[in-house]
Nucleic acid binder design. Structure first.
Length: 575
RNA sequence: CGGGAUGUGGCUCAGUCUGGCUAGAGCGCUGCGUUCGGGACGCAGAAGUCGGAGGUUCGAAUCCUCUCAUCCCGACCA
């Protein structure tokens, strides 16, 4: 492709709307343009990058035995009512009525549609397993779309669904997808990590997330440097010794703590460690107040609490609600005498006695509290957030934290949808059984953004070769010099014939402009053809990732180029 | 949805607090000339209902009310 006839409007300045680096660079490099909040047009360069990702995903899905289909974006409400998600999916499901007043929605995911498809066709265990996938535009009416392609309302997703006749088969399908995903991210040239994860609203028994590592990632990954344990912080288990016999403690007593609301203030005022204090957090779960107790120096993991009590909606109580529940201002809530509110304690709180807790009275705390004696705790379970340095649940080594961007998620769904939608088959014994499902998503458009979050510098994007819209930018510094033009055309043709996608910058621009644009757009390889080099019979080279410059002879160029290109690819960790 | 902020040529912003002449700058764009190895320079030009509606005022980009949009922080998620 010739840049002079391409549509890649680059921007010198960053549009005010962009905050994160991938969004800024995608706009600046002329890859995307916003239509409205969370909805973007892919320009030629952006689309090429997107398609490069999609094609690798497709190849690996095919290799893993999945079959590509294409399902509709518009879906009837009836199906969603049948699965129960019409009520429960929430306002992210974009609903509308058509001219016949039929309720419909734009698909945010396709469990209902595939399950409906399969239940009509598959009758026998002989037809199983089957794994169907698609690469398609999803719509989720996000409360707050943000960060450009990172969280759009419309986004390209690869979603696959497996149906198996038994649990062993379902596990095999799951791990086949897991392996395919690992291959995909390796082939894309991205640094990633697979971690065990919470299965969230989609439901199911277990799941893994694939995270692209990037300092700007929204998710925190707790991973073990010694073994292969890795988990999303939401899911990471806290290790806790089993509770022993607790020494009895004297009767609880009230102590004045005037104006001391926070754990830190109370600890400092009483001259004790925050570890001796119990934090009482009031939440509203599906409209009902609940209290969660964690040690003063710990953070509550809301996902764990939500899963424990199986709540659909969980939020921190407002100050007014706290006052209503505890009869005391915020900061003095405690587990003792909290009438009508279920208490859930972190497992660590069963290990010791003599806690300091809020007194449910302004400016007062209780000490010498025995939680089993003085309060009615419903359960002691893992509720806290893991912290860096905590022991690995598998091997005990100190966990380290890194930031990542979730780009893929594999779920073992089990019977959730097959039961809801009655997807059954006859087994060997002629007995009707529910199919066992798995679902597997990859955020194709998000990968493009995540890839840029991971690979960029001051000058712009640094695309890994497999994702780059063009692998090579061929810069002709002398677009008016016939000899240079002829040579540029010759190299351009040779590269394209050799299967190396090349963008020829044949614009009548000053050299600086061309260099800046090539850097910004992030092509892995830059070749510069200028008067100086031409006279000496060489082309200049630049590896965008390392910034390293070199030369290649014009005589026997292609061969020398292909060899050097191999080095560049190896630098990316590609085969 | 709760909290915070912003809307002024295509882009980045100044001007708004303290109302007042023809609304400015840089980038970009068009033409001409000089340039030409890391976002050139000169000259000439095109381009703005100051997000929208209503109000206050002799007079509104500026003050008031409403509204729309966008961005950031939270809950959700590929």
């Amino acid at each position: 492709m010739r840049l002079s006839r391409y549509y890649a409007p680059t921007l010198k300045e960053t549009p005010a709307e962009a905050e994160v680096v991938s969004h800024k660079l995608l706009l600046r490099a002329g890859m995307i343009r916003k239509l409205t909040a969370g909805i973007y047009t892919y320009l030629p360069l952006g689309l090429k990058a997107l398609n490069n990702v999609a094609n690798i995903v497709r190849e690996e899905m095919d290799r893993a035995g999945a079959l590509e289909i294409l399902m509709p974006a518009v879906q009837p409400a009836d199906l969603w009512k049948e699965s129960g998600r019409w009520e429960f999916y929430g306002r992210e499901l974009l609903r509308f009525v058509d001219r016949h007043d039929r309720e419909s929605c734009l698909g945010p995911t396709h469990e209902e549609v595939v399950t409906d498809l399969v239940r009509h066709e598959i009758r026998s265990y002989r037809q199983l397993p089957v794994n169907l996938y698609q690469i398609q535009m999803k719509f989720r009416d996000e409360i707050r779309p943000r960060f450009g392609l990172m969280r759009g309302r419309e986004f390209v997703m690869k979603d696959a669904y497996s149906f198996d006749k038994d649990d062993a088969g379902a596990d095999a399908s799951y791990w086949a997808m897991y392996k395919a995903y690992a291959r995909i991210f390796e082939r894309l040239g991205l640094k990633f990590r697979a971690v065990s994860a919470d299965s969230g609203a989609i439901g199911g028994s277990f799941s893994h997330e694939f995270m692209v590592l990037a300092a700007t990632g929204e998710d925190t990954i707790a991973s073990c440097p010694a073994c292969d344990y890795g988990a999303n912080l939401e899911k990471a288990e806290a290790v806790c010794p089993p509770p022993g016999q607790l020494a009895p403690c004297p009767a609880a007593e009230t102590v004045a703590t005037p104006g001391k609301h926070t754990v830190e203030e109370v600890a400092a005022f009483l001259g004790v460690d925050a570890k001796k204090i119990v934090k009482t957090l009031l939440y509203v779960a599906d409209g009902k107040p609940v209290a969660a107790l964690v040690r003063g120096d710990r953070a509550l993991n809301e996902v764990k609490l939500k899963n424990l009590i199986d709540a659909k909606d969980l939020r921190l109580a407002s100050p007014e609600e706290v006052v209503a529940a505890t009869k005391a201002p915020v900061g003095f809530a405690g587990p003792v005498g909290l009438a009508g509110i279920t208490l859930y304690a972190d497992q660590e709180l069963a290990l010791e006695n003599g806690w300091i807790v809020g007194a449910n009275t302004a400016d007062a705390h209780l000490r010498q509290v025995d939680l089993s004696r003085d309060a009615k705790v419903a359960s002691f379970t893992d509720l806290r957030e893991v912290a860096p340095g905590d022991p690995c649940p598998k091997c005990g080594a100190a966990l380290a934290f890194t930031k990542g961007i979730e780009v893929g998620h594999v779920f073992k769904l089990g019977l959730k949808y097959s039961k809801a939608l009655n997807a059954t088959f006859l087994d060997e014994a002629g007995k009707e059984q529910f199919m066992i499902m798995g679902c597997y998503g990859i955020g194709v458009s998000r990968i493009v953004a995540a890839c840029i979050e991971q690979n960029n510098d001051e000058a712009g994007i640094v695309f890994p070769p497999p994702i780059a819209p063009f692998e090579v930018a061929l810069i002709n510094l002398g677009p008016k010099d016939e000899a240079a033009v002829a040579k540029a055309d010759e190299l351009y043709d040779a590269l394209n014939k050799a299967g190396v996608e090349t963008l020829l910058d044949d614009r009548d621009e000053r050299p600086g402009v061309k260099f800046k644009d090539a850097d910004l757009m992030g092509f892995p390889i830059q070749l510069t053809l200028g008067g100086k080099g031409l006279a000496r019979g060489i082309v200049e080279t630049k590896d965008r990732r390392t910034g390293e410059k070199g030369e290649l002879p014009l005589e026997g160029f292609l061969e020398a180029f292909m060899a050097w290109r191999e080095n560049v690819r190896q630098g990316w960790g590609l085969e």
